[in-house]
Every structure is written in C-alpha cells, then in structure tokens.
C-alpha cells in the first residue's frame, strides 16, 4: 500500500528562494527510503512540508490516501512521526517517561502505560524513564525523542538527520536500532554510510530529484556523487582501493553486511587462485622428479 505520495511538489520560501522543485516520489508501506543531498538541498524542508508545516505549496501531497491541505494537516500528522534534527526541540516534559507519554495522552490514545513501556523498551532506554531529558547525552536524547514518536505508533517515521551530532558509538547504536525497526521510514540525511545500513532505496535531492535507486546505484554514479557533493562511504572507498590493487570487486559494497559478503568472495577467489597455483606448482615438481 502506498503511504506517501508527492506529485510535482514545489515550494519556495518567503524570500523567493526555491527549496523544492517538481518533486515526485512515493513511499510504500514498510519501505525505508533515504533522502540524500547536501546542506540546503531541501531535505528538512521536505519533511516539514510533508508534516503540513510549510504551506502553501504547488503540486500535491497524499499521506495514507488523504490529500494534505490546511484543513487536513492536523489529522494527517497523526499518521506521521517527525524526528527533529535537534532533539532539544522536541523534549519538553520533566521526565523521559512523561515526554514519551505526552503524545499518546494529548491524542487520547489507549493503553498509555503500555505504549510508554514499549517505546522505551524498543529504543533501549527503559532505565532512563525517570531521568530529566535535558540532562541526557545527545545520543540518549535522540533515543528519547524516537521513543516519544514510537509511543504514538505512527504509520510513517520522518527522520531528519538522525545521526547528526552523535559520537561514533551512539551513531552505530542508533543505526542498528533504526535498521532493526520494522517500520515505514523516510530519512533525510547526508550520512551515506548510515543510510546504506538502514534503507532499501534512496532519492538524491538537490532542490529537484537528481537520481533515485539503491544506495549502490547512487555511489557508483560518480557524476551524481560529484554534483551533489556526496562522499563514498569509507567501506566503499576501501573496496575501490582493493579493486585497484588487483583484487577485483564484483559489486562495490556500501554497507558492512555487503562488505562482509564481498570480502568473503574476494578471499575465496584469491584462496582458490592460490590453491590452483600451488597445485600446478606441485604437479610440475612431481613431473621433474
């Protein structure tokens, strides 16, 4: 089922700057899609626009089959969970559990205790339930913000730069968490490495759509990568080096899983070659004797 659809979506700021131009995209139920692009590409604007905070716009937006308009925005927001770039913008209650309970309580949803518990548990911050949100580390604040969204059980998660400002450990923990979630997600990011781990499909945005496809399709298109100023993930760079050193890589890996699979193939291939060379050598030696 199609949960999100935009058709020829265009938006300009009050000062006339075009933020989005003719954007047509879709997001199906259960799909994880990344919006990639440099700063100022319109990624955050797109998420805020989909949430009904940037109006008026040209084109159409439909969320779960309903057309986004001024009148329907409040209703549509119930199906969306927006994670802000700065978690301090969305944590306002005195304790983490109260903050997680805030959405379900204001929306008058059932089983608030259960929702809070599930939200905290799925983000791994049950032990922080009674803590003050503003005293947490940035990574934990992000988790608390995600828990607050999950407790509302939205159809689609809109995540704005989820990995920004995180230390490597918190970043990889968050990536693992998002990867493990079985939810529909639209992630605006310029962190190609994180996107490669989480999403199925990506859209490169630079005011308009530059390219759409898998992360591998995107990273192997050097023209697109250069145009939007994206850098190859470290793992892809490593395999490119291996390729140039004489260890041919079948498909450039973009995530750790792909890298492990590719590395296994390379080692296997090199091992086979070495073995066959060894066999030939031994056969030659036997002939001599």
């Amino acid at each position: 089922m199609r949960v999100l659809e935009t058709t020829k979506l265009s938006f300009a700021y009050d000062d006339g700057t075009t933020a989005l131009r003719d954007l047509t995209m879709t997001l199906d139920d259960g799909e994880k899609v990344a919006i990639l692009g440099p700063n100022g590409a319109g990624k955050s604007t797109l998420l805020h626009l989909l949430s009904g905070f940037r109006m008026p716009f040209d084109g159409t937006v439909a969320v779960c089959g309903r057309k986004l308009e001024q009148q329907s925005a409040d209703d549509i927001r119930r199906d969306l969970g927006l994670l802000f770039q700065d978690p301090d913008d969305q944590l306002f209650m005195p304790t983490v559990e109260e903050d997680v309970a805030f959405g379900p309580r204001t929306l008058k949803l059932d089983d608030i205790e259960g929702r809070v518990l599930r939200g905290l548990r799925s983000t791994g911050i049950e032990h922080l339930a009674k803590r003050r949100p503003h005293r947490l580390s940035h990574g934990m604040k992000k988790r608390a913000a995600i828990a607050g969204i999950l407790a509302m059980d939205p159809r689609v998660l809109l995540l704005d730069e989820p990995t920004s400002g995180l230390d490597p450990k918190s970043r990889s923990e968050l990536v693992r968490l998002l990867k493990s979630m079985d939810r529909t997600m639209l992630i605006a990011t310029h962190d190609l490495e994180a996107a490669a781990e989480i999403v199925d499909r990506a859209i490169v945005l630079n005011v308009g759509v530059v390219k759409e496809g898998t992360i591998r399709d995107i990273v192997t298109d050097s023209k697109v990568m250069e145009e939007v100023g994206l850098e190859l993930p470290a793992i892809s760079r490593l395999f490119k080096e291996l390729d140039s050193m004489g260890y041919p890589v079948e498909a450039l890996p973009v995530s750790m899983d792909q890298a492990v699979a590719e590395l296994t193939k390379v080692i296997d291939r090199v091992g086979r070659q070495a073995r066959s060379r060894g066999v030939t050598k031994t056969a030659g030696q036997k002939k001599k004797t």
Binding site: D86, F102, G103, R105, L107, G148
Partner: peptide, 23 residues
C-alpha cells in the same frame, strides 16, 4: 527559530493547550 520548531514538535504530538503532569 527554536520557538517555531518547538511549536511544530508540539503540534506533531497533538498538543492543543495544556501540559498536564502524567503521574
């Protein structure tokens, strides 16, 4: 800027006008 973002965050979570203590 922050005020705008906070308002949006409140709206995203269905806020109307009152933040009651939960427990």
């Amino acid at each position: 800027g922050r005020a705008d973002r906070i308002f949006e965050a409140l709206k995203m979570r269905g806020f109307s006008k009152d933040m009651r203590p939960w427990r």
